[in-house]
């Protein structure tokens, strides 16, 4: 990357190349050009569909746009002032935090549990692996709609529970129940992905390490904690980053299952943003919320990346 003098490039240039490079188009320069050309689609796409819109979000957040009347007015920091004073925002942020924390905790725990179970030397694990993974390929909205039926007061879940003599709650109509339901529906949908990644990581842990530990008298839990977890920590880190960022984007599940209710108990930031922008048509305020969302994701990712040093045993 530091080579600049054409003379030196000419000396090291590949003489075996059939087409001799012109004086300007040295092999090195041609390589640069190819590099730029290869990344160009992604780069231009990122500029048009990511960076420019990101800048525009900031600009919109300083304006108010009335769709029906067709007006677009500069309002300065009004939308941010509103953000600071919005009485609903604390509950929205709480719901987002609850959802993300719950989702990440349950998802990673269950994924790890399933991966460990499937990593036992048992016949038929491939079948179970397929079953646990199958919701991943079911369309998200179809999955959510079905759970919407199952979670009704007289729906399938409570029906199943009544078979075992338990009276189930009215899942989607109580604050805690609704949040729990939304989390679990999302976990069951996607835990298969993390499970597969964990399983691949587990299979890379050499059996000899376990043998040695067993000889040293370490119990199963001890082996799991002191060997398995550290050895798969890079995977744990990456999956947790992806799961956290993903949890902040959850929309379809909320829109289909609870519409943010009951009360505002499942109105997470993304859903609130959608409501403000596309239901109430306050695109300016919606944009201010989007800026907030971006800031949160940025901070969380940086934090996790920081933690990596303390947390991760070795780099893959």
């Amino acid at each position: 990357m530091t080579v600049r003098t054409p003379a030196r490039t000419a000396v090291t240039g590949r003489t075996s190349a059939p087409r001799k490079a012109g004086r300007f188009w040295t092999a090195r320069r041609r390589d640069h050009l190819v590099g730029y050309l290869f990344v160009a689609p992604q780069l231009i796409g990122s500029v048009i569909f990511v960076l420019v819109p990101l800048g525009m979000v900031v600009w919109y957040s300083l304006n108010e746009w009335n769709v029906l009347a067709g007006t677009f007015d500069f309002v300065g920091a009004d939308n941010y002032r509103r953000l600071a004073e919005d009485p609903k925002l604390p509950s929205v942020l709480t719901a987002s935090a609850l959802f993300s924390a719950g989702l990440v905790a349950v998802n990673l725990t269950l994924a790890l549990l399933l991966a460990v179970l499937l990593n036992q030397r048992l016949r038929g694990t491939a079948v179970f692996r397929t079953l646990f993974f199958s919701p991943v390929v079911v369309s998200l909205v179809a999955w959510t709609i079905v759970w919407g039926f199952l979670l009704q007061k007289n729906g399938g879940i409570n029906g199943l529970l009544s078979v075992v003599g338990v009276t189930g709650p009215n899942w989607l109509r109580t604050g805690g129940g609704a949040m729990f339901s939304v989390i679990m529906v999302q976990v069951f949908k996607n835990v298969g992905l993390n499970m597969v990644l964990f399983l691949a990581a587990l299979q890379d842990v050499p059996a000899s390490v376990y043998e040695a530990a067993r000889i040293d008298g370490a119990g199963a839990w001890r082996r799991f904690r002191s060997i398995t977890v550290p050895l798969i920590s890079p995977t744990l880190l990456l999956t947790s980053i992806i799961t956290v960022v993903g949890s902040l984007q959850v929309f379809a599940q909320i829109a289909v299952l609870t519409q943010g209710g009951p009360g505002t108990s499942t109105t997470v930031l993304v859903y609130y943003l959608y409501q403000q922008a596309f239901q109430f048509h306050q695109f300016g305020y919606g944009s201010a919320l989007a800026v907030l969302l971006f800031a949160i994701v940025l901070v969380l990712t940086l934090l996790q990346w920081r933690l990596r040093r303390r947390w991760v045993f070795h780099e893959a």
């Binding site: 109509r173 109580t174 943010g260 209710g261 009951p262 009360g263 505002t264 109105t267 409501q275 239901q279 109430f280 048509h281 306050q282």
Partner: peptide, 19 residues
Amino acid sequence: TGEAEIAQTVRAALDPLWR
């Protein structure tokens, strides 16, 4: 006027009544 936001706000505030 501003029906969507009013409707949502009332819905959310009324929810605690339905128990």
